[in-house]
């Protein structure tokens, strides 16, 4: 790792102020993604702001019947929370399908949303990557891109977002709550939180410099049947090829998809159709595939079909 200085922030706003004072700084919470990238010198912050001691580790009901999840609630604790298991089971299911027990014990809610891509060319320092080094090119386009994006990609980047949790959050219409260095707070709908790569794939979210996530809030429970089906190359501990989050109830159905794009993918207009073929066709509209990843269109339709059958069972 490159040398860096380290501090423990005393409050959320103080953390945001420190981030403004040190332009090449990073917040660190679980650290399971950041330290991995720092060891490879893909991330080279000169200052780390430890945000683990801000008291943002609680899950509480909101006045409107929803749930506010502190930014630093660990993935294990969120998946195991009694209210989440009962009322937002799709979120529990998504969380436990990701990573390993050890990583879930460390990884946080906010950090999970901010995970960086697992595109092999992002990790390979000997190859060009517009996300790692803007303007250097994309080795994934025309490279080994079997597990990369088929939706929302650009000529600059075909990386996918690796999170399972974020897919469930997208389906549940979560809002990402933040604070900046002036103490100004805002809540960003998750649909607008992650950006498509366009020609700036290194800018992955709408967070401003120094802006810190303090919580993720969920609206009141949807009811219905909650399912999360993930297809991957191993039975456990692997990123998704395709994943489908679904909540299906009397007269409504919602779907969100992982493994397809630079952000969790949801097409609300598709949710009015019936049957996997029609829904998948609407979701996959505009898909651009390569010979390596064209299988994802078929896999999306079939995984959705399996989810619909399970919901009826």
């Amino acid at each position: 790792m490159r040398p860096f200085t380290y501090e423990r922030a005393a409050s959320a706003q103080a953390a945001a102020q420190a981030a403004v004072a040190y332009p090449n700084s990073k917040f660190i919470a679980g650290g399971t993604n950041l330290l991995d990238l720092m060891k490879l010198q893909i991330e080279t912050p000169t200052h780390l702001i430890d945000v683990n001691h801000l008291g943002l580790d609680r899950i509480e009901k909101t006045p409107d019947g929803g749930l506010r999840i502190g930014a630093h609630v660990r993935n294990t604790d969120l998946a195991a929370d009694k209210v989440v298991r009962r009322d937002y089971a799709v979120l529990s299911r998504a969380l436990v399908s990701g990573a390993s027990g050890q990583l879930r014990n460390k990884a946080t809610t906010a950090g999970n949303l901010l995970q960086r891509t697992r595109c092999p060319y992002f990790y390979d320092m000997s190859k060009p990557c517009n996300k790692r080094k803007p303007g250097s090119g994309c080795a994934a386009i025309g490279g080994f891109n079997r597990n990369l994006a088929i939706l929302g990609a650009s000529d600059a980047c075909i990386a996918t977002h690796p999170s399972d949790m974020a897919v469930a959050m997208r389906l549940l219409d979560a809002r990402v709550e933040t604070v900046d260095s002036h103490g100004v707070t805002r809540a960003v709908p998750i649909a607008q939180f992650h950006r498509l790569p366009g020609d700036t794939p290194h800018i992955e979210t709408v967070l401003q410099p120094g802006e810190l996530i303090t919580a993720v809030s969920l609206p009141k429970p949807l009811g219905g049947r909650h399912l999360y089906r993930k297809v991957r190359d191993r039975a456990s501990y692997a990123f998704a090829n395709v994943s489908v989050a679904a909540v299906i109830g009397d007269g409504f159905q919602h779907f969100a998809f992982g493994g397809l794009a630079h952000k969790p993918w949801r097409v609300e207009a598709a949710e009015g159709f019936s049957g996997a073929d029609a829904i998948a066709e609407a979701v996959l509209s505009g898909a651009r595939t390569t010979p390596h990843n064209a299988f994802k269109t078929v896999l999306t339709r079939r995984t959705l079909g399996a989810v619909l059958r399970e919901a009826r069972a």
């Binding site: 380290y6 660190i28 650290g31 399971t32 330290l35 991995d36 780390l48 294990t76 027990g101 050890q102 990583l103 014990n105 460390k106």
Partner: peptide, 9 residues
Amino acid sequence: RRINSCLTL
């Protein structure tokens, strides 16, 4: 809690 000690400072 079990954790990966290599991925934490």
